[in-house]
């Protein structure tokens, strides 16, 4: 057949498309379950890291099994709460924090009336994960989500059962500048949050990220990343915005009330 004829070109293109489409869909469907498993394990790993578990990650032969095992052992409960702090139906683990962040962002946008805020808050379903440590104390883990310099940043913050003291925190990001903003994902930054307090004399203050360094002994502030001002500010905003929505939930917990008296 003449290679330059239209029919040849057309048939050739069709055959090529069929072959390529088959090859690609086979690869994609064949690998899909494994890819989703990776994403799931990564989320579990981050949740565990926020309560300082999964420390021996580099030395285990099978990471996935190790993470699954720890998750089963320590995370005893996961549930959703609404904006009033009451439990809500739904799968807490599958809840994508980005959807919640989109609502939170609308709530905090300029020019939103109180009624609109109320309606928006009605849509919230906030995940809570409960971890029971070996000494049977309970730690409560809440996810946070926000914007850094280039794109999304997110993390998990774990709290003691007084719902005031931070037990641990971990942050991750989509594409902050390596060496600057990307430092939020390193222990040097997120370890600072341990022992900090969200409330000052009963008032919610969140945690400030102080440029140039927080004063020693400041229980409500940590050091910002030098050269990563916008990312640091993003983390501060993220904590404030997300944790604000959890406040009613904190307020209903027994130990929280006790600690205020």
């Amino acid at each position: 057949m003449n290679k330059n004829s239209n029919t040849y070109t057309f048939l050739y293109a069709t055959a090529l498309v069929v072959v390529v489409a088959t090859a690609l869909s086979l690869t994609a469907t064949g690998l899909k379950s494994r890819q989703q498993k990776n994403i799931e394990v990564e989320k579990k790993q981050n949740i565990l890291l926020s309560v300082n578990k999964a420390g021996a990650l580099d030395s285990v032969p099978d990471r996935n099994a190790y993470i699954e095992e720890l998750y089963r052992r320590y995370i005893v409960e996961e549930y959703l709460v609404d904006a009033d702090g009451h439990r809500k139906e739904g799968d807490a683990f599958a809840m994508n924090m980005k959807t919640q962040y989109d609502i939170i962002r609308e709530i905090n946008a300029a020019g939103v009336t109180d009624e609109e805020k109320l309606a928006l808050r009605g849509k919230l379903s906030l995940p809570v994960f409960v971890c029971r440590n070996d000494d049977s104390t309970l730690k409560y883990i809440v996810p946070v989500y926000g914007l850094g310099l280039w794109g999304a940043i997110w993390g998990y913050v774990s709290l003691d059962d007084d719902f005031n003291t931070v037990y641990g925190a971990i942050f991750d990001h989509k594409g902050e500048t390596p060496g600057l903003g990307a430092e939020i994902a390193f222990p040097k930054f997120f370890k600072q949050f341990e022992g900090k307090q969200l409330f000052k004399e009963g008032q919610f203050t969140s945690i400030r990220i102080v440029k140039g360094g927080a004063p020693a002994g400041d229980r409500h502030g940590v050091n910002a990343i030098s050269g990563g001002t916008i990312t640091s500010r993003g983390v501060e905003e993220m904590l404030k915005n997300c944790l604000t929505e959890y406040k009613p939930f904190f307020g209903q917990q027994e130990r929280f009330k006790e600690s205020k008296n």
Binding site: V20, A23, T27, L31, Q35, I39
Partner: peptide, 19 residues
């Protein structure tokens, strides 16, 4: 098309085995 197909396969494999 040949190159793009190979790249997609490599990408999918990386996502599954070297996340």
């Amino acid at each position: 098309v040949v190159v793009a197909t190979l790249v997609i396969i490599v990408d999918q494999v990386l996502r599954a085995y070297a996340y």
